[in-house]
Design a protein around this nucleic acid. Structure first.
Lengths: 333, 333
DNA sequence: CTCCTGACTGTGAACGTTCCCAATGCCGTA
DNA sequence: TACGGCATTGGGAACGTTCACAGTCAGGAG
């Protein structure tokens, strides 16, 4: 007796088993409109008996809908590995999409070659839309995708495309203002900031918020959202302004780097220098001391991100969503 | 003049533009065997001119190959958000797959409902195989996938399935032995360990390695790979053994929790208590002091993971790959 | 009784590929 | 000259769906 390599059951098998036609089964599977109760019951049973599951490729071929979206991480590799924000966002998006029965395709576009591959892949109709994360201003990817009429939503204000690309973002400016105000109210007389990358909206908006409260004369060191960058920026600040007693760092990861620099300079945190972070990312809990920071509403951000993308896929006009941040006081300030 | 909503070019368009038949174009696209140089050139030009990209759905429908694999994160949500190891692995796998032009579908199977959805999705033929991450012993997912003949490779020894499921793993036991030996050679007289979850291979193997060097009488506290779990375990250890002077913690994240507990108890690290971690995950650099740890070869692990999965998809026999770890000395021991 | 309406059903065509087989032409050899 | 073999080519069939359309049937209105 030969063990037959069993073929996957098709809609035909279900139709045969339930005594109705292909079309009726298809209708049943797609909402069950115009299907009599009797037929529905028979089909339901047949599906269970045969173990039928639809072949998405066949379905996608005719509907040209794939029920999956791309999550494009447009960052150099090192940041991906160390920055927890991406992961929080990624997991949030995956969960939010799962609620709509949509799959997430992870793509990394760190260099030029990657971008080509990703762009080709996405425009080849594999996905219904794309979530673009942390695109820096001048990124050509956003142009390419728009050129191909692929629905795109970004997280963070897409610098230079605010009008035509929908996006979701935290209220970076107000968050920075709040943190700066908190640091000053706590007694900070000489306050500085370490910025994020200034070709991202988070970088410029948080800097602007800081300046609005601390004044335009306050010391600024440019960071790049990495731990090493935060550390180096802190060292520069300390060298130029040994008397500073408070610093607003535009991301928790950079703040953890800043803490290292402060410790190595012999300063105590928060006694000598108060440190305020931004993000409330997982690192905020594992530093010593734990970081006082502005919480970004990650879960809500990813949920809105998904909601917006689905709306755009369904033809909605591009729009923007801004969510408030929240001060979380811990030990560093 | 009406702006025609342009139809995506198909293989027919390319055939027409290059003056050959559908079949020849298809052959050209799939390796170019049995295509004359002249035809090849004409097709190449036509592809460029028309902007043609294949429709993967159509291709997959006939080949029943999707050129994508699922990355299944089978963990409760809180671990995903805080444990950097998953992300390192995820990004590594994405890159390794990209080299083979294969896409990665991220799925999270934290609870029972998720598992159902994921299982249904995967068995519906969307993916060619699955990368199963951190499945705990007794996880039903692995049974289900195997039952459906889906190629699966796990990271970490799949407890209870070592024979039939291929896997990739670090040499946890030897790594633990090395770290324990290092801690003792450094002067640790009274050494303890904080284990990982004991229903994972990393948990049991690292514990075994520790015991082989430290002896079976050495204090053991069970952890769960979380920061809070590491901290609580450290507190238990200190309460029961106030005199201990070295501790091997089975993951960096738990170690960062242990550092907090040690600091709060007034002990200095490494002067009073030496701490050795495991993983060399990004957190190891952001703790104070920085962690001495065993490096897992993440890049290589993910590369092997992918290689193995592709081999299994191509019909290879299940096999296992074990890679060595490496001691990284920093400040905590 | 006839007709119309609306719910339900079946079927052919299409989606864009790959696969298979038959056909062609060319070359070298018997 | 005839023939076998090889490289190359074209086109029909299939993959498993959805969609549009036409058809059936029952029941209520005229």
């Amino acid at each position: 007796m030969v063990t037959q390599k069993r073929r996957r059951p098709t809609i035909h098998d279900v139709a045969a088993a339930s005594g109705v036609s292909r079309g009726t089964v298809s209708r049943f599977l797609n909402g069950g409109h115009n299907v009599s109760p009797g037929a529905a019951k028979a089909i339901q049973k047949a599906v269970k008996d045969t173990g039928y599951v639809v072949n998405q490729h066949a379905r996608s071929l005719v509907t040209s809908r794939s029920h999956s979206v791309a999550f494009i991480l447009a960052e150099p590799q090192e940041r991906l590995f160390e920055d927890p924000n991406f992961n929080v966002l990624l997991h949030g998006a995956t969960r939010a999409l799962a609620e709509h029965d949509i799959m997430l395709l992870l793509t990394i576009a760190g260099n030029i070659d990657d971008r080509k591959r990703v762009s080709r892949y996405i425009t080849s109709g594999h996905v219904d839309g794309a979530l673009l994360v942390s695109s820096h201003s001048g990124d050509p990817l956003i142009e390419e995708l728009r050129g191909q009429d692929i629905p795109v939503v970004t997280i963070g204000r897409p610098l230079g495309h605010e009008g035509d690309v929908p996006y979701v973002v935290s209220d970076d400016r107000e968050g920075a203002r709040q943190m700066t105000r908190y640091l000053m109210d706590r007694g900070g007389r000489k306050i500085a900031t370490i910025t994020g990358a200034l070709d991202t909206s988070g970088g410029v908006d948080r800097l602007q918020g800081f300046r609005e409260v601390a004044g335009h004369g306050a010391p600024v060191a440019e960071g790049d959202y990495t731990l090493a960058g935060g550390r180096a920026a802190m060292e520069r600040l300390l060298a130029a302004h040994p008397d500073l007693d408070a610093v607003f760092v535009a991301s928790d990861l950079m703040a953890s780097g800043a803490l290292i620099a402060l410790r190595e300079s012999g300063r105590r945190v928060p006694e000598d220098v108060a440190v305020g972070g931004f993000d409330d990312s997982p690192v905020a809990m594992s530093t010593a001391p734990k970081l006082t920071t502005m919480r970004q509403p990650w879960t809500q951000l990813s949920r809105e991100l998904v909601r917006l993308l689905l709306a755009v896929i369904d033809g909605a006009e591009p729009s923007a969503i801004m969510l408030p941040t929240q001060l979380v006081v811990r030990d560093s300030a």
